[in-house]
Design a protein around this nucleic acid. Structure first.
Lengths: 343, 343
DNA sequence: ATGTTTTGCACAAACGTTTGCGCAAAAGTT
DNA sequence: AACTTTTGCGCAAACGTTTGTGCAAAACAT
């Protein structure tokens, strides 16, 4: 009842009456190196064609300790920011001969942990992660096992793990500067996951911009705690209930801003008539909204490509990457969701 | 220089001075079945903890001919329709203990073919595909090798490969009906890849609706040939150049409609003032566009979940799925991009 | 004709599992 | 005390590769 695989090197060997090792060598292009006769090479190649031979990658991986597979752990593949990165990660990897196994952590540290373990057990050659928590021991363990890693978006400086992320500080600074230059002073900021460095940096940029213009920082305007649309929605609702609601809201991620937009509409407030809105992450549709939204663009394509290149370079060189982190520039795209008001 | 793995069953065996087979059995919970003493079980389990043992999944996969991995070949992970499906595929699979390796075919038949081969060589347990071409011999070959497959979105009836897709015919019919009931007669339809069944079905629905209302079908209004935003853009431009341009455009996919919208704006035409627009695929932002767009919603979540369930059921039962295809309902979501005009 | 080099390939181990079978020791039976 | 059964575990093969080493035959040299 057991189904035998009829497509192995062994079958070729039997068919051509040569040894398995000889077959393996010609199939791997090592014919001359091992002095296999052209004659033998030919019949082996021919037999391989005929039998439609393709190598069992598990066996090869086991033997070679190399799978030509990388893992990618992403917090939410449905988030367009991440799906664009994933797109580029996959394409770059594929062009280099690697497959990618995709794991969605759902922003859950436990899911991330178990995914890391599974990937390691699958003997992937390297891993790209946008980590969720602050606890990264499981990732450092990987590093100890000499498995190349690169962080995307979220990162941990000083841990000697290369990362690629946006210029979050600068991006946020410019966004807030833009707001201030348009006369805003009561500017709210809705965060994503507070422990993530991109958010910390964006908040730092937000605060720095305010200070730069001598505007006092009102801590009660810094709200929110995750990347969901609901977070943006709820926090906006709450902000609007304040005695002195903000004149502008800075959403620190696309989903958050989307939620903010929904809340504003629900409250019957116009953008930017009643409240100005500015968001991190640019998306094609922002230009076609009833109020085109000004945004801080992140170059997802670049981020994905660079990270994957860094990873594969590490894998193939066997060395750690020289540069620790790469910050890819952001760009403020001014549209019409920021109103000019009288300071 | 060679790096030895110090984390194998063999090392546990050495440490506890028992045989590899015994260790394997208790680690796999087959202790009683093979009459391993509780005593032995305990020290093995303890040693496994201490050594932090985790199984090499390549070796296990090779031996068991089972990898707990499925492949997913998708035409464009950055397309929100697909990324939502991918999200659900991954989540469902993960909950069932499977990993998914994601391959983006970029709507290229050759990429698809080679991805299929690679996945098969990796000995994945099953595969979900949204196929690109009409040529599916490479997929039928898989079937011959008893590798479970299910199609998503695109499909091939009569090939005995289960699929899950939307009620494309009905969805399109209703969309066009909606247009007609609002007085439109010159309705253009911008297609995606013509050879794909969903598109054929949508076009069929489009035509049926027209005929149903005794409106002559103008073939010159059925245009376009792929799923890109550019396709929507260009075809719209061309449609507008006609002596009698359409009063309404039906974009057969989200990117297409987006391109149409961009073209309309560029031409200075208002939606729906000058041209009505209706699209396949609903997306959250459609509601917030300057003209909220009416859309035919596809239930991406359901599609992803059902397909993955079908696949895993096949894998774990060893049988083909009973049902050949599942059509999940669509829903017309009327917003304001369709103008009521005088028939 | 003998000795040396080259040619052409095969043997067998190894990667880390799982599992059918076998076998000694312990326990139970009479 | 001798025989049967049960208990507890190990041996070795197998999954499909790759590769270091060995070795006979052929070719070359003198």
């Amino acid at each position: 009842m057991k189904e035998y695989n009829l497509n192995t090197i062994k079958h070729i060997a039997e068919k051509v009456e040569l040894s398995v090792s000889t077959v393996s060598r010609v199939l791997n292009g090592k014919a001359k190196k091992y002095r296999i006769s052209d004659e033998a090479s030919e019949i082996i190649l021919k037999a391989a064609k005929e039998l439609n031979y393709t190598p069992n990658l598990l066996a090869r991986g086991l033997r070679l300790n190399k799978t030509f597979t990388i893992g990618y752990i992403i917090p939410d593949i449905a988030n367009p920011f991440f799906s664009r990165i994933a797109d580029n990660v996959e394409k770059y990897a594929r062009k280099k001969g690697y497959s990618v196994v995709l794991c969605d952590s759902e922003e859950d540290a436990n899911v991330e942990k178990s995914s890391v373990q599974i990937l390691a057990d699958k003997k992937i050659d390297g891993m790209i992660i946008s980590p969720v928590g602050q606890e990264i021991q499981h990732i450092l363990d990987l590093k100890k096992k000499k498995i190349p890693i690169v962080f995307i978006d979220r990162y941990f400086p000083g841990k000697d793990i290369p990362f690629v992320t946006s210029e979050n500080y600068k991006g946020a600074f410019e966004a807030v500067k833009h707001l201030i230059e348009n006369g805003h002073e009561r500017i709210a900021c809705i965060q994503g996951l507070k422990e993530t460095l991109p958010i910390m940096e964006r908040v730092r940029g937000y605060i720095a911009a305010l200070k730069n213009y001598n505007i006092p920082v009102d801590e009660s305007l810094i709200v929110g705690d995750n990347f969901s649309e609901q977070n943006g929605y709820i926090e906006t609702k709450l902000l609007l209930k304040k005695s002195k609601p903000p004149t502008a809201i800075f959403g620190l991620s696309n989903l958050i801003s989307f939620g903010a937009m929904r809340a504003l509409r629900e409250e019957g407030l116009s953008i930017p008539g009643d409240t100005s809105l500015i968001t991190f992450d640019d998306l094609p549709y922002l230009d076609f909204l009833s109020t085109p939204m000004t945004a801080v663009e992140q170059q997802g394509n670049e981020i994905g490509n660079i990270a994957t290149k860094m990873l594969i370079d590490q894998i193939e060189s066997g060395k750690n990457y020289e540069a620790e982190g790469i910050f890819v520039p952001t760009k403020l795209i001014a549209r019409s969701s920021v109103k000019k008001i009288n300071g």
